[in-house]
């Protein structure tokens, strides 16, 4: 089986903990993420899932633990790597999709400029090439070419989120962190976004870690699931297995609390 032949995971997390004074953010989290896998992290607000995501993505410094990423130089701990190297990773191999598009976009820069920024950040200096790539990516997220010189302030919520995704994926990252990517969007817009994400994940062979409280989203997007409660991981497994045959009391409560997913 071809993928099993890969011997190193893309991301290996070991003993990751982060507390805010006496309050626990997340505690002793560990897992492997393999190339092409999409992992969902679910839990209620305050369960530590966003803290965990921020620690993984290098936005927060964890108190203990390692976040090893598969680089050209083998598995490297991104927690202890130099800040320039980590920031470089953040605009090449990694991408981060924020819940609120305005946090991940430059609202005073055109859609094309938003997509082009990551290219220019890694040294692209040919205007027409940058523009061509931006057009291609806007098309892939279903934003018409004639909107590329408009600012995101003129876009709907769904369009902004799609623009944020284009901006993140244009440099061909290998790992995408997503924080409630469909939160705050209309149901119909959510569906469109989910479809888009699924297609992109498959076509680009992306790995992704998606934080959400929406079990329907992970059901459709995630291969695997991690359930968090009070900063602890209480259950992990295949998405459909965790949702259909939850083992932990909290997961059972979570699953039974939502309308049929």
């Amino acid at each position: 089986m071809k993928d099993i032949a890969v011997t190193e995971p893309l991301l290996r997390v070991e003993g990751l903990s982060k507390s805010y004074g006496r309050r626990i953010g997340c505690e002793n989290v560990g897992f492997d993420l393999w190339p092409g896998e999409v992992m969902g992290i679910v839990g209620e607000s305050g369960s530590g899932k966003t803290t965990l995501l921020n620690c993984l993505a290098g936005h927060l410094a964890p108190d203990t633990g390692r976040v090893l990423f598969d680089t050209d130089a083998g598995m490297v701990d991104t927690v202890t790597m130099s800040e320039p190297a980590r920031r470089m990773l953040g605009r090449t191999d990694w991408a981060f999709v924020h819940q609120h598009a305005q946090d991940g976009l430059r609202m005073n820069v055109s859609a094309g400029g938003n997509v082009g920024e990551r290219l220019m950040a890694v040294g692209a200096r040919h205007y027409r090439d940058i523009r061509e790539k931006a057009v291609d990516w806007l098309d892939r997220v279903e934003i018409a070419e004639d909107r590329m010189d408009d600012r995101p302030t003129a876009f709907s919520g769904g369009m902004r989120q799609r623009l944020q995704i284009a901006r993140n994926l244009v440099t061909g990252p290998r790992l995408v962190f997503m924080d409630e990517p469909t939160g705050g969007l209309d149901v119909s817009v959510q569906a469109r976004l989910l479809d888009l994400l699924r297609g992109l994940v498959r076509e680009m062979g992306l790995s992704a870690i998606i934080v959400t409280h929406d079990l329907a989203v992970v059901r459709l997007l995630a291969d695997r699931l991690m359930v968090m409660k009070s900063g602890q991981v209480v259950e992990t497994g295949l998405t459909d297995q965790v949702l259909d045959d939850p083992q932990h009391g909290y997961t059972q409560l979570l699953v039974s609390s939502v309308l049929q997913v």
Binding site: R91, V109, S110, G113, G116, M120, A121, M148
Partner: peptide, 18 residues
Amino acid sequence: ALEEYGLMHVKLYEDIAR
């Protein structure tokens, strides 16, 4: 400090686009 100057070109990009 980290010589991350992509943003400066975004400004020039915006000029040309507009």
